[in-house]
C-alpha cells in the first residue's frame, strides 16, 4: 500500500478513530485506489506497532461504512463502488468538525459575528487564492 499512516498513541483520540480517519483520507485523496488490497491485520499492526484487535476494529468499521470489502481468505480491498464517495463524505465530516471547533473557539474568546466572519473570509482568501488564478 503506497499510503503512509502514523498513529499517536499519546493522543486522547482512540487509535482506531485515528486510523479510520487516515485511511478514509487516503482513499479520498486517491493515494489508495479503488480495488486496492489493504495489508493484513497482522501486517498493519506490526508496521505501526499497535494492537491487532485495534486494526481488526478499524477494518470492521470501514467495512460497515461501505469503504472496504473483506472476504475470508482473500483479504480486505477498497470497494470499487462508492468507496470514494463514502471516504469524501467522511473527510467532509472531519473538515466540518474542525470548522465547528474554530467558530466555537472564536465565539468563546469573545469575537463578534462580524469579526468571526471577517476572519473566515481572510483565511479563505489566503488558502483558495491560488486556485482561482
Amino acid at each position: 500500500m503506497p499510503a503512509i499512516f502514523t498513529v499517536d498513541p499519546r493522543s486522547g483520540v482512540p487509535l482506531y478513530l485515528q486510523l479510520i480517519e487516515q485511511i478514509k483520507r487516503a482513499i479520498a485523496l486517491g493515494t489508495i485506489a479503488p480495488g486496492e488490497q489493504l495489508p493484513t491485520v497482522k501486517a498493519l499492526a506490526l508496521e505501526l506497532t499497535v494492537n491487532p484487535n485495534t486494526v481488526a476494529r478499524v477494518y470492521r468499521e470501514l467495512e460497515r461504512d461501505g469503504v472496504i470489502d473483506t472476504s475470508p481468505g482473500r483479504g480486505s480491498f477498497v470497494r470499487t463502488d462508492g468507496a470514494g464517495v463514502e471516504a469524501r463524505r467522511a473527510v467532509a465530516d472531519v473538515a466540518r468538525a474542525a470548522f465547528e471547533t474554530a467558530v466555537r473557539e472564536a465565539k468563546s474568546l469573545g469575537l463578534s459575528r462580524e469579526e468571526t466572519l471577517e476572519l473566515m473570509a481572510r483565511t479563505i482568501a489566503r488558502w483558495y487564492e491560488t486556485e482561482n488564478e
Binding site: 498513541p9 499519546r10 497482522k42 499492526a45 506497532t49 499497535v50 494492537n51 491487532p52
Partner: peptide
C-alpha cells in the same frame, strides 16, 4: 507481543511505561 497476539496468544503484561500499554494493549 503484537505478533503473538495476532497468532492467537493471550497476553498479560505489567509496565510503568503507560505509552507502551497505550500502543500494544487493547
Amino acid at each position: 507481543m503484537i505478533d503473538a497476539a495476532a497468532n492467537g496468544a493471550a497476553i498479560l503484561f505489567s509496565s510503568h511505561q503507560v505509552g507502551q500499554v497505550e500502543r500494544a494493549a487493547d
